[in-house]
Design a protein around this nucleic acid. Structure first.
Lengths: 245, 245
DNA sequence: CGGATCGTTGAGTTGTATCAAGACGGGTGG
DNA sequence: CCACCCGTCTTGATACAACTCAACGATCCG
């Protein structure tokens, strides 16, 4: 799912949920989208902001994070091409989290006005965007369950399973191999562990023959084993399968 | 916010977000709602279900939970009167979590058809319902941050702060005192700790003069102190304040 | 007045954090 | 093209938050 035109990615994303009519496709194609590139580790929006636009990730990885009073960071979500990290701001005027790039990124910004307009005229597009935010929420629930009730080893396995499924869905993984330009410190902030512990847990996963990694390339060697280790059931990702949702 | 008619609670809930037109109010008032009572600890819907209706809590407390392969439970949300615990099922056909009562409950069930109908005719009601699911998601993010990066003592303080604010908003708390019919085991499943540890942490909070409790009645004795202990900022609840959201 | 549920306490164990230091690796400038 | 440097990864030692197990006390209710 490499985007030719910036809007093409959004159209394909929604089309993976339900077939679009020509009218809907045209409306989406004419959405104004401002394309901006970012370097790694740059804030895109910050907690407390009142954005007038939302963005879609076109290339690269972003994360949603919050900081505690003690200065500790929790990454509550990663977003990959096709995702909209701050779509919520369409209806929640004040941001309750920050969004930052993890890798070099290209983002497409769409004014809230334009999104409102298309929603008013196309109820099924409203439903599809609403649904996107619901899938995000579902992922939050799954992560919370992991952080609260699974050990670090299993959480890491789970996260890698999730990446494989999500990246495969957008054509960024093949044969169980994908590029994961995320440092161990960031992985630690995502699974709620220390960097040191993440390092050890990754070594365990390698030693157990579940994964292999070279630089930022990650390969899943034993999909069934990793799924078992991570207690991973892709149901919560709500990818289209048969009549499902 | 004690509901006279079952639909009254929903109308008041939405009116706390923006003023409703007469037409919108009438549409909401004529939503079919089937009222059902539940005893404590009963499942309302289960993971894997494909509900054809969503419910609103009219009385009592419910929780949303997931189980791990090891049989551990994580409660990812509590819901109080006025909340809709499974509104997501309107657009995500297969449930990725279960919902259960915590205390005796009265719930109002609304067919998805009826919700779809009202959404198609009233875009602002769509937005308000969408917004409800976004606030839920925001609470997930905040809880995840706590579970991942705060200690149990602080998480418990945070949760009590949240209850006070949310229950006050629906008229179920006064002068920092409210009824919390939730066992320590359930609190433990919510903050991702063991029952034993929750017990000790509650004793600490009492010893520190932050709270008092007698039976299911909880009193916040030192609001500023509890907020500080919980690193609590109500922003994430997105309650209406001035032009905010 | 049992019996069940919930809360409380103590003792021992463990997952994971913290601190500190060294190894690796890719990019930059001389 | 090498030397340096900075971020990242890795390793070892120690400390602590929190878990588990086990038992006992309190409370409510039929």
């Amino acid at each position: 799912m490499m985007a030719q035109s910036p809007n093409g990615l959004m159209i394909r994303k929604l089309e993976s949920i339900f077939p679009l009519s020509d009218e809907e496709r045209n409306a989406l194609a004419s959405l104004p989208m401002q394309v901006v590139t970012f370097r790694p580790d740059q804030d895109i929006v910050r907690i407390g902001d009142r954005p007038t636009q939302s963005c879609m990730v076109l290339q690269g990885f972003t994360c949603v994070y919050k900081l505690t009073a003690e200065g500790k960071r929790q990454i509550v979500a990663f977003h990959v091409p096709g995702d909209m990290p701050d779509l919520q701001s369409l209806h929640l005027k004040v941001l309750d989290n920050s969004v930052a790039t993890v890798s070099p990124c290209t983002l497409g910004f769409i004014p809230h006005e334009a999104l409102q307009g298309i929603c008013n005229r196309h109820p099924r597009i409203t439903a599809a965007l609403w649904r996107e935010t619901l899938v995000d929420a579902s992922i939050f629930r799954e992560w919370m369950t992991g952080i609260g009730r699974r050990e670090a080893y299993n959480r890491m396995a789970h996260l890698l399973c999730e990446f494989l499924v999500r990246l495969t869905a957008v054509g960024l993984a093949e044969d169980g191999t994908f590029d994961l330009p995320i440092t161990q410190t960031e992985l630690a902030d995502a699974i709620g562990a220390s960097t040191v512990h993440v390092n050890r847990v990754l070594q365990e996963l390698r030693a157990d023959g579940l994964i292999r990694s070279k630089g930022t390339q990650v390969s899943i060697l034993d999909w069934e084993g990793l799924k078992a280790a991570g207690d991973f059931d892709p149901l919560y990702l709500h990818l289209r399968q048969d009549g499902d949702a």
